[in-house]
Design a protein around this nucleic acid. Structure first.
Lengths: 397, 397
DNA sequence: CTCAGTTTGTCCGAAGCTCGGAAAAAGCCC
DNA sequence: GGGCTTTTTCCGAGCTTCGGACAAACTGAG
């Protein structure tokens, strides 16, 4: 299947990939524009495009784009796009308490979507059954042959060990470790399955589609039940030596604080996770609040909720300060269930960063909300597939 | 000069590079071994090797390697090596108070070396003169033509902005910013000059030659007058969005501590830099100690010095804990002038990391001393040249 | 309506690269 | 010296990319 790198075929595969990327990045594109973007010759691009058209990975746009015409006349370009029906991708997000499944086209536009509350932690195998069934249903529903689905991406809320040896770091996990999710889903779906940590994939999504477009160095902070982060550094998603990068929730911010499930004291998660937020509000309100309730109160302007959320933001800022000083990112993107709380949260983070970063770094770091909301993780899972698949794309020709 | 990527020439350049790397990695090598290492065909390797021989970048080993012969007889391979006299590299380290210059061969083995105390901060231009003069002297001294020197790498003790706009982050700097060091040295030497931050280059050196060989994810901590760090993440040196990554010295570890030159309070540098270390010891001893004196006392077993150094290590650990939690590195390498203090320093770091990291991450992170000592930065500068030059190597054919 | 002018896309031959097989080279062992 | 093995080179074949020439398609002026 895979040919030697350094061969002519590898070169052509590489160039095909660059053409596909150029089209993906700018949507409807003329061949000339691809030439300018890739630096390849007209001839080569023409050859590659007609090949991709034959494989139905691209389609030619039929209608005139605009009646305007180019400045000074000339033959109008024929535009090509990624063929929406040329293939599809499945994305799955296994949260602690819910399962989300999407099917997208090759441009990662969502074609169908389903979501279901589910106690994933307690019934992982059932959740996998549900996810697989739903994925197949959705694929059929949008009229896509399963043979044209590139693969499935899965976002899970545990660290994903890159090269897992016997020494499993179980402490932070909750029984998931005994199940090989990728294999299980592959057996149920018959598709290549790519696995990623949900915070890392949130970063991937905001990088590819959201607030981090065009930015090669940023930190995605996911505030939900737990607290995690995803790092895009130098134009690559960074997963750490053992796939444990991004565990922002276990940075110690209160050395004498509560004991965390990881065994330490005062981790960020014990201060800014869903549990402590809800607990702080429940003390003054009824006892049966959820994180979404706190966020809603916050959006309604409830002073107590705003204060609680801002304090959580400050704690996040304390954990982020050291990281930002050392990594020099251009951007911090805040996502997860708590993110819709908006301004108070961002203000808390910004306030602490302003005090704890050297001025030169602080001035360079923007702090913004994510643009993809609760879809971030599942879209990241989709992007994981499209980013890592082109090799396959180029084979079934 | 530079051809379009994706062209045939680019492919050949790339393959040449892989051959060179294979030879560099294993020393004397036969062509067949290169075939196995690169996956290229016999023919291609043969063609590339003879080309490189003609350019005198490689040489054929004349003598029999061992009289043993291969198992079962057969034609003995002709081994090729990087030609030590095929070219050279200049490395310069501009510290705050000293200048160091080396000349190495293409395999980065040091051929000549010079070092001189110098108040670089106050007399930068003179220091550049000295460095350039010394570099040319050393090149002549080892009998190398200046036209066969690939370039000069320079390690400077300020952040190096990757894509410097007008908005210069001067706060941490000391007047260096007005001088374009790369241009100035290029004018004096007539060579391509590559610039890097000294902590980043220390990391590069330990990664390429020292304690971080084979490790793709580690943090190099440089404890000297100031405190800095270099990051190797996912097999790349990471310099940050604006080249400011690694400023570990300005992570806040004592929020109410002394004011730092960066404008913040309680930065690591105000606790574990040379100044505070010397000050703490001078209080009980004479007033005119240097950092080297403190290190020497520590090595002699002086309890006070050991305590001071261990406390500095603990402060470093506090700064590192958050970073390690988020980055999940495999290794922390400690270098810089303070590093020879040895065990007390490492013990301080390890003790705090053990308390502040989640057990799963702590167990994965080793903390060790660097192997290159005071040569690390200047060797990193050399590596910077060889790593980024192959494009040039391949041109002057 | 016709005719330059302009931009886009395709076709063709040329040059370059890598690959696999065949042949030559170089030693070991009987 | 004759097998035997391993390394290295030579040669033709098959791809791939590139530049120039040519066809296509549309605008705008006369």
């Amino acid at each position: 299947m895979v040919t030697a790198p350094g061969s002519l075929e590898a070169l052509r595969r590489h160039n095909r990939l660059r053409v596909l990327e150029a089209v993906q990045r700018r949507g409807a594109t003329s061949r000339v524009e691809i030439v300018r973007a890739t630096g390849l010759s007209r001839t080569t691009v023409s050859s590659l495009v007609s090949e991709l058209l034959a494989e139905q990975l691209l389609t030619e746009q039929v209608e005139r784009p605009t009646a305007s015409g180019s400045p000074g006349g000339g033959r109008p370009p024929t535009l090509v796009t990624l063929n929406p029906h040329g293939g599809g991708v499945v994305g799955v997000h296994l949260g602690h308490d819910s399962v989300r499944v999407v099917v997208t086209d090759l441009a990662c536009a969502v074609l169908a979507e389903a979501q279901h509350a589910w106690d994933v932690d307690a019934h992982l195998s059932d959740a996998l059954d549900y996810a697989a069934r739903t994925a197949l249903d959705l694929v059929a529903q949008v009229g896509l042959g399963i043979d044209r689905v590139l693969g499935a991406g899965v976002a899970v809320s545990t660290p994903v060990r890159v090269c897992a040896p016997a020494s499993a770091p179980r402490s932070v996990l909750t029984g998931w470790d005994d199940v090989n999710i990728a294999e299980e889903l592959h057996a149920r779906l018959g598709l290549p399955v790519h696995l990623g940590n949900d915070a890392n994939l949130g970063a991937m999504a905001e990088w590819t589609f959201g607030a981090g477009r065009q930015v090669d160095d940023f930190i995605y902070v996911m505030l939900s039940d737990g607290v995690g982060a995803g790092l895009v550094l130098g134009g690559h998603l960074y997963e750490g030596a053992a796939g444990m990068a991004g565990e922002l929730g276990h940075v110690v911010v209160t050395p004498d604080g509560f004991v965390c499930r990881c065994g330490n004291r005062g981790c960020l998660e014990t201060v800014a996770g869903a549990g402590p937020l809800v607990a702080a509000m429940s003390h003054s309100r009824g006892a049966d609040l959820t994180l979404d309730d706190v966020v809603a109160l916050c959006r309604d302007g409830d002073p107590g909720a705003r204060r609680v959320v801002e304090d959580a933001g400050r704690a996040v800022g304390r954990a982020l300060a050291g990281v930002c000083t050392v990594l020099d990112p251009r951007l911090v993107v805040v996502g997860g269930k708590t993110a819709p709380a908006g301004e108070p949260l961002l203000a808390g983070i910004r306030a602490v960063l302003a005090r704890r970063l050297s001025p030169s770094i602080n001035q360079a770091v923007r702090v913004v909300s994510g643009e993809l909301g609760s879809r971030a993780e599942v879209l990241g899972a989709v992007a994981l597939v499209t980013r890592s698949t082109p090799g396959h794309v180029l084979l079934h020709g």
